[in-house]
């Protein structure tokens, strides 16, 4: 294993998360690192039916499930395959093997808290998240997972911007 070991990626069903995963895939190939995809499962998501809570606070989350949940894993496996095939295979040492090494984890709690904890538990070399377009200065500090994570994490955070 390379000195970059593991890369934790923050995942939900958003485009921003997909961009973060794409960036992490590139990194994982280049650095010979393992991807650990982490989803922080919130209070509403835990208690309510799929989709029921999505409209409440305007943030899309994944179907509920526990560690090893199939719907989460299936969706992320599908994204990973799409991303790798979009990028083409064969370039770089890691790519001949197909998909990068990876695991998926669902962690209860606020996304920031879940990613900070997972970063520590996995001793990750970095945490990769997508940015969400929260407007205004205050929004930058409080309203986005990526900015909160940058304030709270005890290891490097990579924020992947929108197109």
């Amino acid at each position: 294993m390379s000195r970059f070991g593991r890369i934790v990626v923050g995942l939900d069903a958003s485009e921003g998360a997909r961009r973060a995963l794409r960036f992490a895939v590139d990194l994982a190939f280049e650095l010979d690192a393992e991807i650990v995809g982490v989803h922080g499962r919130g209070l509403l998501e835990e208690a309510m039916a799929p989709g029921e809570q999505a409209d409440l606070v305007g943030q899309r989350s994944l179907p509920p499930g526990s560690e090893g949940d199939e719907s989460f894993e299936q969706q992320m496996e599908a994204w990973l395959s799409e991303i790798v095939s979009e990028h083409g295979a064969g370039e770089g040492a890691g790519r001949s093997a197909g998909l990068p090494r990876h695991r998926w984890r669902v962690v209860e709690g606020n996304p920031v808290m879940a990613l900070v904890a997972a970063g520590r538990a996995e001793d990750a070399s970095m945490i990769v998240v997508g940015s969400r377009g929260a407007g205004g200065f205050a929004g930058l500090v409080l309203g986005s997972t990526s900015q909160q994570l940058a304030l709270h994490a005890d290891r490097p955070v990579v924020i992947v911007p929108g197109p």
Partner: peptide
């Protein structure tokens, strides 16, 4: 300070559960 400014500016989502 940030929470007060966030509310004064109209607010929004603080996390997937919290507004």
């Amino acid at each position: 300070e940030a929470l007060r400014a966030f509310c004064d500016a109209g607010g929004g989502n603080l996390d997937p559960d919290t507004v």
